[in-house]
Write a protein that binds this DNA or RNA. Sequence first.
DNA 1: GAGCACTGC
Length: 724
Amino acid sequence: MAQFWKPGTERPPLLDDDEGGILLYSASSSSSGYGYVSIEKQRQRLPVFKYRMAILYLVETHATTIVVGETGSGKTTQIPQFLKEAGWADGGRVIACTQPRRLAVQAVASRVSEEMGVKLGEEVGYTIRFEDLTDRVTQDSTRIKFLTDGVLLREMMEDPLLTKYSVIMVDEAHERSISTDVLLGLLKKIQRRRPELRLIISSATIEAKSMAAFFHTSKKRRGLEGEDCVPKTEPAILSVEGRGFNVQIFYVEEPVSDYIQAAVSTVMSIHDQEPMGDILVFLTGQDDIDAAVRLLTEEAQNNRKSSSGLVVLPLYSGLSRADQDLVFSPIPRGKRKVVISTNIAETSLTLEGVSYVVDSGFSKQRFYNPISDIENLVVAPISKASARQRAGRAGRVRPGKCYRLYSEEYFVKEMSAEGIPEMQRSNLVSCVIQGCSGALEGCLLNMEGILDIRVGRRDKLKALGIDNILGFDWPASPSPEAMIRALEVLYSLGVLDDDAKLTSPAGFQVAEIPLEPMVSKMILASNQLGCSEEIITIAAILSIQSIWISVRGQQKDLDEAKLRFAAAEGDHVSFLNVYKGFLRSGKSPKWCNKNFVNYQAMRKVVEIREQLKRIAQRIGIVLKSCESDMQVVRKAVTAGFFANACNLEAFSHNGMYKTIRSSQEVYIHPSSVLFRVNPKWVIYNSLVSTDRQYMRNVISINPSWLIEAAPHFYQHHHPNSIPH
DNA sequence: GAGCACTGC
């Protein structure tokens, strides 16, 4: 066997582009693609293949192995197969491999089943939310299972030690999504109880050392370590080269003041001076992208000679499926494709054939302020890791070039190495209910104390033992304020008790429903109020992006169509009207088009609704319709979303509201049916932050319902804000 | 009368 690395011997080198601007370069890898070679030959050509023995050795002897591998190394598809071939799935055990995204789970599972020559859903299977393609009923024959990290977290509710798995591989750990981080924190705990469990953490170049430090438990089992069956606690690190090509990096000499304009001129000069090859431009959002597309199209018209060969395409998640697919479709010979994209092209979508990348150095990022309890989306500088990932997009099929619209000095001296993990930028309500409640078990916690902390008595914090909870060992610790906020909301929802344990039955029921806790609580309340049919429809609609078709230039028509469904009570009730209309039409695509309703979205709503119905029935919710009594529907919404209650300012001429809990200034979004109606008391589903805070999906309520729904929450903090 | 990076259970 070729290369073989043991701890203590010289380590294979990690590649880095900090100095030379060389990325992912692998001289030995063949560039001819797969061609007509047999599957076995293809497998052997992957860079990871020559590390087969090394990987198996490390997994055998170490509790945790960290595999640092670039795109195209083959680690995701091959390592689970190596493990299976080496016997890790014998005796009914299962090898798990997690991914952050659903699409990746499906794609990888299908590839691996093909390579192994087995039917997907039997020996090789996958699970994503609402979709389980594993064999657990007839034969329990699934040996390799791909799943999203969120699904694995959910499995821990049933089986906290994940006993059926012999090896768990956490892929793309460098992305540091909330669920990956929660999973890593909990897996570390599981390891203590299950020394036979093996973890493989797979990551791009960054952070291998800090990840290793995280998994290096200080408790050493002296005398046992290194003996049969007991693995070393110190994680092994193995590096596998990728299959990418050399990407040459260029920087601007002086900082640019307008990155949109700079991106446009860079595209033009690439087009003038460089050989054929597609261009991928990274900007921040829809506004930027539409502006850049417009500018480039104008250039193409004014300056025929140099830019006539450009096909300019926008790419962001808000585009319809058909518009997104355009970027994958072939273009006429002799033309050059320019894709102007958000971060969606950084990880979620891969465009083959890109030779040039233009990187603005910015992206939109979410930040959470636990004091105001508001999440903001702001344009912020990207990290070095992100910049590298973007550059790598130019070297997938041949050597490429990356033009960074910032200076080399800025990259070297000022750009942070990694982004802030999502866990430190988010509202933690969902996260706490999913993973943390298990981890928090056994910690003493007095919620009254927590509420006092908000009012300013921080000295109580230590005495109450909250340190235990806040000090839980995450790969990235969230701020105490954010954690307290989340616990406070869950306590008010009646989901956690004074000891931060799930309440019975409400807490367990809420945890069982795979939706945000506030939505789940709304569903529970609908059971008592006799409107579960309606509320489940609302929950399904709220869980997809939008039910409307948005076509640029037809905004007015859409607004008019919306009016046909508008209900005085608010958006939630209007959604019910759309759903009823859709059913009455016989789920007709034609009806949808006529009414500016997105047919695909409505089919998804129907599907999710069916799944939610099944889950609801399983946890004892009786399906019942309230017919036309919308008051109970509004009460159920209040029971889940009381924390988002707002009051219209008494003398406001411009529709200014203030949130009850933190007196934040907020406005009804113009897309809401209650825009300009301005009822005195409303509850919103979410906030959008731009120059103002806009409430999206708003429903009017009676303030007395708030105290009814959440006596602790409102009587404790705001005794005077609500008329009795 | 205005505008939503990207995921996930």
